[in-house]
Every structure is written in structure tokens, then in C-alpha cells.
Design a protein around this nucleic acid. Structure first.
Lengths: 106, 106
DNA sequence: TGCAATACATCGTATCACGAGGTATATCAC
DNA sequence: GTGATATACCTCGTGATACGATGTATTGCA
């Protein structure tokens, strides 16, 4: 899929992936894979950005000798998803503009 | 609206704006305004990019002493819109992932 | 005379996705 | 025990790109 199209979805998509249950990087990639593939470098960049924007909090957990960073969504993160829902109305209107058939000669 | 969300729409939106009738920069901005605001600098960047990608052709027309550059969509441009329609199915599936209610506790 | 609208353009900046590469442990096959 | 694969994190550099700022030039109206 077109990279540009993904851009606006990525941040919200990651938030959605941890919305119902705290999760960690590797797991998030696996969960999102059926919908949207993203590389590790991309995910960790996004997670950092979301943490900086206080959309989520981080907690270290040891699991079988390896450290995992569990991410937990904040209220601001939940609000961000809600904003996206609002934006979606505009997106759909743009979609209709793009795919409209002008009746003129088709 | 979120800039990132617009990104994937912009190119296709401009193509859609000239799909039914050749148009020029200033007019395109006005036509798109109700759906998607974009600055002149952004539009001219996009038009250059679309021309380079052979999505449209350009023709100079003098109009009341001023030069206008009329843009005409090519078959490749039309195909690009069709590709977008295809991508839209994936986008909608991502939208459902983001807005899904997991039933668990809501 | 001045200002808004029309119509084009360039440049620099900030944001961002991603590939390439790095570190380290667990697990399983040979 | 050695190597490969999976797990799990990270950084850096690059290319793409939207946009504000700025510039040029004409038309038309107050």
C-alpha cells in the first residue's frame, strides 16, 4: 500500500493496538501485521513519539530473561483515537470527492 | 485536520480535481477548498511531482494578459485514481481495526 | 494611488517512515 | 556445542514531502 496513505493511520493504529490490553513492541507488530505492516524501526520511532506526546506510558517487565517494555494507553491516547474518528468524516468526504462520477460523460 | 492524514489523499485529490475538466493551479485550490485546504506552495509541488510521474500533461494558455498552466490528466493519472480505490479497501479495514470495540469491557 | 485578487514560482525547514545495522538472550535442530 | 532462528530492544542516515515565507507580475476596483 502507498506509504503516504499509511502515514495518518500509523500513530492511531499503534494506540488502537494497545487500547484494550497493554502490549510491547514485538507483539504490537504481530498484532498489526494483518492490517498494516510496519518495520521495527518505524514502530519504535512511533512509540517514542507517542510517549513524548503522553499518549502512552511505559513499564519494564522481565519475561524469561528478556526485558519487555509494556505500553499502556493514557486518556490522551484514547482522546487521540476519538479525534481520529472525527477526522474520518472529513476523510470520507474527500474520498467521495475523489471517486465521484461527474455525470457529464460517464 | 491532521496533516499526516491528508498526505495520502493529496496527489489523488488533485488528479480528481482535473479528471472531468482541465484546470489550472488557482482554480484547483478553489475547487478543493471545501474538501481539503492546501497552500499554493504545496499544490505546485504536487503538480510538478504529478507531471514528473506522467500523471498529467501541461498546456500554457493566455487568459486576460496572464498566463495559465492548464493541467490535463493522462491515462496513468486515471489509473492512479483507480489504484487509490483499491487501496481504500485496505484503509477501511485499518479503520475498522482502529475503531473496533473489543467487547471485553465497554 | 493603493490594495486585493489572480497566477505563477523557489527555498528552507521540520516531520517522518524505513532500511541498514547493532546488541543480547532463549530455544531448537544437527 | 555450534549454528540458526526467534525474541526483544535500539540508533543513525536518507529520502520524501507539506508548508510557511517570500518573490514576481498583472488585472481590477476603490
Amino acid at each position: 500500500m502507498d506509504i503516504q496513505l499509511k502515514r495518518g493511520l500509523l500513530d492511531v493504529c499503534v494506540l488502537a493496538a494497545i487500547k484494550n490490553e497493554d502490549s510491547y513492541g514485538y507483539q504490537i507488530i504481530k498484532d498489526m501485521k494483518p492490517y498494516l505492516e510496519l518495520s521495527e524501526s518505524t514502530l519504535y520511532t512511533i512509540l517514542k513519539r507517542l510517549e513524548a506526546g503522553q499518549m502512552l506510558t511505559v513499564r519494564m517487565v522481565e519475561h524469561q530473561g528478556r526485558l519487555r517494555k509494556y505500553y499502556h494507553i493514557t486518556q490522551q491516547g484514547i482522546d487521540r483515537i476519538e479525534e481520529f474518528r472525527e477526522d474520518w468524516k472529513d476523510i470520507e468526504s474527500i474520498y467521495r470527492f475523489i471517486t465521484r462520477e461527474d455525470g457529464s460523460n460517464e
